[in-house]
Design a protein around this nucleic acid. Structure first.
Lengths: 341, 341
DNA sequence: CTGAAAGCGCTTACAG
DNA sequence: CTGAAAGCGCTTACAG
């Protein structure tokens, strides 16, 4: 059995004061005479006292712990966002208890529930594709929560979201400006609201002929699908990929097929992978402002914890289109122009 | 003020039993008659009871929370390892409270201390470069801990480490086998024990002329340093990079200098970045078995929590060298061989 | 089998 | 200013 740690009682005993007084001193609350203050402080350091935050949490009904649930960690957007969430936690003097949903609504529900049983003061959730049950659970628990992206609107929560419509419009404008018409959008999770918005925006755009391709987890369908879409007179001239992993597989597949970028096809990638600037050619990407997202989420959550009744905020953040070498005029326009000369 | 949640007392009241009996039923402990069991179960679901894990933790002096401290999240090795740590947490029925040290010994100490005040049952630590104070703190707290890598031996802790010496020997053997002699090792944190082992192994190897280059955070010294090391008759023919970010900068710099891989210089990268297979040429890398590391850490920690007195374990895991296109014979041997014909 | 009671380590009104 | 006491929501011997 582990030797039990010194408690506030031990401090009080050694300092010859009451537990209440010791508590006041250590928390800088109430008014205590200098003499006793010194006594308590000395006693605490002498015996190496460290407050038990579990006891304090129980008593105060406030844990200073924020629950954080995300689908995963190990891809560009998620790891950058996760790091930003943890970096902000220190600023706001909270700990974070993180759980992974794996994108599975059932696990999401269970793990958020486990967070609730831990009495977290608030929740930051990056939802799965079907978050309805989890959102109901959170709403009904009355625990302050902010939902990050992947959901459009919900009056019950503060929401930080990216303006996916604007981002997609930027991408389209860029490609159309270069002369592209047949554009292939490769998505991984067509169910995600995020993806649906992007798809809808693409389909609604004027002057282009968009196609959508949903990939599987193993991406083994990609070579066949891409070689088909990239051949013939209706071949697509530009590809938009929906996330880093998708981008990686697409590039690999294109290389395998011997298709050149941007000569044979242009590429725009959502997310900004760390290697985006490294590949040849460097990638045109849609950058996600992960630091700003995390900061906004924390700020909203802290405000909500402080004032449960204030009106909900929906913050919309703008992505940034970074144009690099992976996009250029389509081959046909280049040839056409050349033949004109 | 948030509406207070139903407690065990509410369940007991509604079921018409004592709190102790309700507790027994809900925890599946003790022997309770079927009639009362049903009563309690029904009452609990009726009022939507959810156990308060903070209260339980205080009473049991066991939180089922593991503290996890790492320098960062957003680079390949760390994000893969972090994800693996979280994935295992569910299996072992613990939550994880994660803090970031940023590689700074002072922050590391403070945040591990805050973990201790949260009464974590155990700690998984990826140490900073000067972890002595933190290690003392943990040892003195008697909280079970397992140290992951970056430390060679410490009888006070269970340790999971990678066999960096063997890994470096594999790299050297590979390069020497190809005919390389002048090898440059680009490191970012020369203080890290990990790095020191790698450097020592490199310097001790027979038949090569190794050089070490320590980069700064901004890597703005890299172009000058590399162009110097890669020119002249003593030019290095192979480069080993110490982590993903370093690798990224090195590749970018080489491209900027117009130096070809592997024609002008071969590259071996420690860590296995997600994009390792994607760049041209695909990278020869030393793969870190992140899943196995996390699994071993959890297993050791759980065993230590169960049996504090059992002897400490030091587990050593083997890296894997993945040979791809970024390494080949050095130019000079190729030219020499050609001229022989 | 069941209930009454102590206690985990704190904070916080409440008297004095 | 200070101390005695209640209580946060549980678990767990201990009687019966």
């Amino acid at each position: 059995m582990r030797k039990s740690l010194p408690t506030l009682r031990d401090v009080a005993l050694r300092a010859g004061v009451s537990i209440g007084t010791a508590s006041h001193v250590l928390n800088g609350k109430g008014i205590v005479s200098d003499a006793r203050r010194d006594l308590v402080l000395r006693a605490a350091t002498d015996i190496g006292y460290r407050a038990n935050r579990v006891a304090r949490s129980l008593r105060q009904r406030r844990t200073h712990v924020v629950g954080f649930c995300a689908p995963m960690i190990s891809s560009a957007y998620f790891s950058a966002f996760t790091e930003a969430v943890h970096e902000h936690s220190a600023v706001f003097e909270h700990h974070v208890m993180q759980v992974l949903s794996g994108g599975d609504p059932v696990q999401e529900f269970e793990r958020v529930e486990s967070l609730l049983s831990r009495q977290v003061d608030g929740i930051i959730l990056m939802p799965s594709a079907q978050p309805a049950a989890t959102l109901d659970l959170i709403a009904q628990s009355h625990v302050p929560a902010v939902i990050v992206d992947r959901i459009l609107a919900d009056e019950r929560f503060d929401i930080v979201l990216l303006d996916h419509e604007a981002a997609m419009r930027d991408v389209i404008a860029h490609l159309v400006g270069l002369g592209h018409e047949r554009i292939l959008f490769i998505v991984r999770h067509p169910d995600l609201v995020t993806t649906r918005v992007r798809i809808a925006t693409l389909l609604a755009a004027d002057g282009i002929k968009p196609e959508i391709l949903a990939t599987t987890n193993e991406h083994n369908d990609l070579p066949a699908a891409l070689s088909e879409r990239l051949s013939g007179r209706d071949a697509v001239t530009a590809i938009i990929t929906s996330n880093s992993i998708n981008t990686l597989w697409t590039l690999r597949t294109l290389r395998g097929l011997g298709i050149g970028i941007p000569d044979d096809v242009s590429i725009v990638a959502f997310d900004e992978p760390a290697w985006g600037e490294l590949v040849e050619p460097p990638l045109t990407v849609v950058r996600q402002p992960t630091g700003a997202i995390a900061g906004s989420a924390w700020r909203l959550l802290m405000e909500r914890i402080a004032a449960a009744a204030s009106p909900r905020s929906h913050i919309m953040l703008r992505n940034e289109l970074i144009v690099r070498g992976s996009t250029s005029e389509p081959r046909r326009s280049r040839q056409a122009r050349r033949s004109v000369r």
